[in-house]
Computed example of a mutant assay.
Amino acid sequence: MPLSLATVNVNGIRAAVRRGMPAWLEQRRPDVLALQEVRADDATLVGLLEESLGGGWHLAHLEPTDAGSKGRAGVAVATRLPVGAARTTVDERFDGTGRWVELDVETPASPSGVLTVVSVYVHSGEAGTPKQDDKMAFLDVVSARMTALAAAAASGGPQAVVCGDLNIAHTALDIRNAKGNRGKAGFLPEEQAHLDGWAAQGWVDVARHLAGPVDGPYSWWSWRGQAFDKDTGWRIDAQWATPGLAERASTCEVDRAATYAERFSDHAPVVAVYSG
């Protein structure tokens, strides 16, 4: 059985529901759903899923508790497939920020029969400020955890996929206005170096791997102006998979809304299908 895995920064689940997210869920019906910027409690999130797709959901959800993160972060992985362990700590320094959660999902899409699905929400940052220091510190611990996940997959353990809003455009292909954004957070060499390191370990940016060296496809556009209509976007939402999973990816698409009015978030879902 193929596995459909979707990731999306909802920019607040309640707002996304008001803007039409349930219709997208009913159309796509993903087997596994990774969410960022949930900004809600477990009951609200499960209620949305049950109203759209029925019951039986397993949920790994980390709500932020830090004063600077509460009400604006939160990550989750939801599925109706059988599950194993859930983990919410990538490093104790970031436990209250609501930016990392892992869930082990049982699926034939992973050679071991178990797939570790991660939902991550990387800080947006701001070059030359403490916000950027926080972002770089978080990327350090994320990269360390990804090293461990890659090693486990290479030794016959669960394959893994890291899904989410990375707030980094990896190359000029991933941002429409590369020249105008040089030196700004999200397009800094020190941020991109982390993604280079993931690739060096064997992690595969699934959408880029399948699309090839083309512009985009972008996954985020500002609400302001005509960014969406002119496709002046960034490709910052991704699925990075370990090799044993990546080789089973048949598609990885950005579900860009047909019109500005039909968007339910400033981010578009990224949906991949992995063969079983």
Rank of each mutant, 00 (worst) to 15 (best):
D215Y: 04
V162H: 11
G216I: 05
S52Q: 05
G156T: 00
P82A: 02
H194R: 02
A172H: 12
F187V: 01
E37W: 01
G164N: 07
G244W: 06
G12N: 02
G47M: 07
L35N: 02
K70S: 14
D205I: 01
A43Q: 11
R19Q: 05
K230H: 05
E92K: 15
W240T: 06
V10H: 01
P130T: 06
E106D: 11
A67M: 10
H194N: 04
Q226T: 08
A127S: 09
Q192E: 07
A257I: 03
Q226W: 02
G233R: 04
L149N: 11
E50W: 04
A249Q: 08
G197L: 05
F264P: 06
G128Y: 03
E253F: 04
P213D: 11
L139F: 09
H170M: 01
T147C: 07
A258R: 10
D266M: 05
L3G: 06
G212F: 13
A169G: 08
L3V: 03
E37N: 04
A160H: 04
S219K: 04
P2W: 14
Q132M: 14
G56D: 10
R176P: 05
A154S: 07
T44C: 12
P243M: 01
D196K: 12
A76E: 01
A172M: 10
M21C: 12
V141I: 14
G74Q: 00
H267V: 04
V101L: 09
T88R: 12
D41A: 00
V162M: 14
G113H: 13
V161Y: 10
T65R: 13
G216L: 11
V273L: 15
H170R: 03
A148V: 15
A109Q: 09
A144R: 15
D237N: 04
M21Y: 13
K135Y: 06
Q36K: 00
L5S: 08
D104P: 01
S143V: 09
V204K: 10
V101H: 07
G244D: 03
A193Y: 06
G156L: 04
W223S: 02
V10F: 02
T147S: 15
A193W: 13
R235I: 02
E126N: 11
Q226M: 07
A43G: 09
T129A: 06
L103Q: 07
D41S: 03
R256G: 01
S275I: 14
E37A: 04
S124L: 11
D95L: 08
F228D: 00
E106G: 07
V118L: 12
D229G: 11
P82S: 05
L35Q: 03
A148K: 14
R256C: 01
P130S: 09
P213E: 08
G212C: 10
L195T: 08
D42Q: 05
Y218E: 04
A272I: 02
G183D: 07
T7N: 13
G98P: 08
R248E: 09
R145W: 13
S143W: 12
G96W: 08
P213I: 07
V204A: 11
A67T: 08
T251G: 11
P189E: 05
S124N: 12
F187M: 02
D133F: 00
T89A: 14
V122W: 04
V204R: 15
L59R: 05
V162F: 15
V118P: 06
V122A: 03
T232S: 15
V214N: 10
T232E: 15
A16H: 03
A178C: 00
